[in-house]
């Protein structure tokens, strides 16, 4: 993308805008399609869906697939657990990542080198499932809400992303505050954090989506504690009921046929996708505003 030479700046800008809008519109269409496809199938009668060929409009409109999902007990309770873990998990995650990031962004910090290596390595090594399970058991985390939150509190990825953002902030800001006698925590809390809103919003989104979408931990650690199972886990169970085909032993073909005849897993799968995505879509604009519009550092610099 070499800089153009003979362009009149304004005309060049206009051409650029048009081309850009065309490209973005193409992206829009291409990326909107899968979601609309899912939505259409979720609203289409499952017996008709089998015939294929649904694109973005339902052929035989129905809410039956959603009704099928919502008749299961435990969804509402699961929803509350999911919301709780999302909120608590995100807050814990943000707190740890931003503090660690600040500490690591301080070039004068003694243990900086050690801390960053220590953290980064955690991204690439894992002891495996069995030791982790035994650790959780020994910490008495099994069968509790905290098993969702505590293990994920420290995430090196998030720390580094936030740190790289902080590195971009003028160091002079801190220096002057320091001369005014502010301690390190005050500098972090009063000066650095407010400037980091865009990256904090991004990390909050990552954390929240991660918490919201995970179900395997619920299954693995809280399967026998229905009071703490999450929405995603309950939905997985619903989905399973329609997917018996492959897993069971096929003793009685008639039973199998009866089971499969009721509702096709395709439709349920799609409806579930919509059910779990909608809350994210609702919350999204509140976070989005922090990272789609630019901000002016100059205002705070002085």
């Amino acid at each position: 993308m070499a800089a153009p030479k003979a362009f009149n700046a304004t005309r060049g800008d206009k051409v650029f805008d048009v081309v850009n809008i065309v490209i973005m519109s193409l992206v829009l269409i291409v990326t909107l399609y899968p979601f609309l496809n899912v939505l259409a199938i979720s609203l289409n009668e499952s017996a008709d869906t089998v015939k294929g060929g649904i694109t973005i409009v339902p052929r035989v409109f129905t809410f039956e697939n959603y009704q099928q999902i919502f008749q299961y007990e435990g969804l509402v309770r699961g929803l509350w657990v999911s919301i709780l873990r999302t909120v608590v998990g995100t807050l814990f995650g943000l707190a740890s990542a931003s503090m660690l990031a600040y500490v690591l962004s301080r070039p004068d910090f003694q243990a900086r080198k050690f801390t960053s290596i220590f953290l980064v390595v955690t991204m690439y090594v894992s002891g495996g499932m069995i030791p982790i399970y035994i650790l959780f058991r020994d910490l008495d985390l099994l069968g509790t809400f905290w098993v969702y939150v505590l293990p994920g509190v420290v995430s090196a990825f998030n720390v580094i992303v936030i740190r790289s953002f902080m590195d971009g902030l003028p160091y002079a800001l801190q220096e002057s505050a320091k001369l005014d006698g502010a301690n390190d925590f005050t500098i972090f809390w009063r000066i650095i954090l407010p400037l980091c809103k865009p990256v904090l919003a991004t990390i909050a989104l990552f954390l929240a989506v991660g918490q919201w979408n995970s179900w395997f931990d619920s299954y693995l650690y809280n399967g026998r504690h229905p009071e703490w199972t999450t929405l995603q886990f309950e939905l997985m169970k619903v989905l399973q009921s329609t997917q018996q085909g492959g897993s069971g032993q096929m003793i009685n073909a008639n039973d199998m046929a009866q089971k499969m005849a009721q509702i096709s897993p395709e439709s349920i799968k799609m409806a579930i996708t919509i059910v779990v995505t909608v809350p994210i879509l609702i919350v999204y604009p509140f976070l989005q505003k922090y990272f789609v519009s630019g901000m002016t550092l100059g205002a705070v610099k002085s």
């Binding site: 660690l100 690591l104 894992s126 002891g127 495996g128 650790l135 910490l139």
Partner: peptide, 21 residues
């Protein structure tokens, strides 16, 4: 204060289970 608790945290949840290796 801001980093040590999390270092210990990471040690417990990420390094302790490495005995599994």
């Amino acid at each position: 204060f801001m980093s040590l608790p999390f270092i210990i945290w990471a040690f417990v949840f990420s390094y302790l289970p490495l005995w599994g290796w």
